[in-house]
Amino acid sequence: MKSAIITGASRGIGFETALAFARAGYNVFATVRNPDGVAELKETAARESLPIKVLKMDVNSDESVNDCIHAIYEETDTIDVLVNNAGIERHGSIEEMTLTDFRDVMETNYFGVLRCTKAVIPQMRASRDGCIINISSVAGKIANTPLGAYAPTKHALEAVSEALAQELKQHHIRVVIVQPGIIDTDMAQALKPGVSSIYPQVNRFGGLFQASLKSPRPSSMVADKILEIADSSSWQLRHPVGPDAAPFLGWRGTMTDEQWVDWNAAEDEVWFDAVQNTFGMDVR
């Protein structure tokens, strides 16, 4: 039986990914910061007799990551798949967010991934097999307000993943970047208009999220793609997921950097009209 570690498995994409892998026959180690908050995952696993073991791991802590990975290797000789899903989000204007906000998001979304990845590479390299799947976002290629703290973490994650893929291919270890678009998660639901800010971009982008979530794309959509990637033999590096992911990335690709800045700096009505003309969504 193959084994997989899924980080941030208490809810959302991590929760659905743990279930998807277990239902597909993987031995799943579902790691969470707070094991008391995973009653639904444990109940589902028990009801369906799924091979899921919930373990406590704080990706922000060297000691916690090392202790958890050590405990996993006491139960299994190999980890076939690592899904680095654990992440947090802070949003607002760069001026109005604190430096603590920036540090917290980078610590979890970037350094947390590095901690977990570095902990499994030696065994994968010795086995000459393995798959490391890093959950990024379309924000890994697109930067705009109010995601000035979040997007840099995903840009950094994509850069280190690309470098790591080059290092590990000779050892037959696949490194994969998954780029979800707007998915119905707690994180996406938190991005709403109505925030008090001197910058209008903070609220109008929240309107875009809420308009998109009127036709919600479930976390299971991303989980199914992650499982598909793990079970494949593809060396494709980046995988946009969701009906708006590739269009968003393509849309950004049609603009120069200067056009992108000008469009996001435009007055509200200009911005709203552009979104409606491009995507058919009224986000006012």
Rank of each mutant, 00 (worst) to 15 (best):
D80L: 08
D80G: 14
D80E: 06
V81E: 06
V81K: 04
L82I: 12
L82N: 13
L82F: 09
V83F: 07
N85P: 13
N85W: 03
G87N: 04
G87Y: 03
I88Q: 07
E89A: 13
R90S: 14
H91W: 13
H91L: 12
G92Y: 00
G92D: 08
S93P: 00
S93I: 00
S93D: 05
I94F: 10
E95L: 11
T98M: 02
L99Q: 12
L99A: 08
T100F: 04
T100D: 14
D101F: 04
D101S: 07
D101A: 09
F102Y: 14
F102C: 08
R103K: 15
R103M: 13
D104V: 02
V105Y: 08
M106A: 14
M106R: 08
E107R: 10
E107P: 07
T108M: 02
T108V: 15
T108E: 03
T108Q: 09
N109R: 09
F111T: 13
F111W: 14
G112Y: 00
G112K: 11
V113R: 05
V113D: 10
R115E: 07
R115Q: 14
C116L: 01
C116D: 09
C116T: 15
C116S: 15
T117K: 08
T117A: 12
A119L: 03
A119Q: 02
I121D: 02
P122T: 03
P122C: 10
Q123L: 08
Q123R: 15
M124W: 12
A126S: 14
S127I: 05
R128H: 10
D129H: 13
G130F: 02
G130K: 06
C131T: 15
C131N: 15
C131G: 04
I132E: 01
I133F: 07
I133D: 03
I133W: 05
I133C: 06
I135H: 03
I135K: 02
I135N: 13
S136D: 01
S136F: 04
S136L: 01
S137N: 08
V138I: 15
V138W: 04
A139F: 01
G140Y: 01
G140H: 07
N144V: 13
T145F: 00
T145N: 15
L147T: 04
A149M: 12
A149N: 11
Y150H: 06
P152R: 01
T153H: 10
T153K: 09
K154C: 01
H155K: 05
H155Q: 01
A156H: 09
A156D: 11
L157R: 02
V160K: 05
S161N: 08
E162N: 09
A163R: 11
L164A: 00
L164G: 01
Q166V: 10
L168I: 01
H171Y: 14
H171N: 06
H171V: 01
V176Q: 12
V176N: 13
V178W: 05
Q179R: 13
G181P: 10
I182S: 03
I182Q: 03
I183M: 12
I183K: 06
D184A: 14
D184T: 06
D184F: 04
D186P: 07
M187H: 01
M187I: 12
A188D: 12
A188R: 13
Q189T: 07
Q189R: 15
A190C: 04
L191K: 09
K192G: 06
K192I: 09
K192L: 10
P193R: 11
P193V: 09
G194L: 11
V195L: 08
V195Q: 14
S197N: 02
I198P: 01
I198Q: 13
I198M: 06
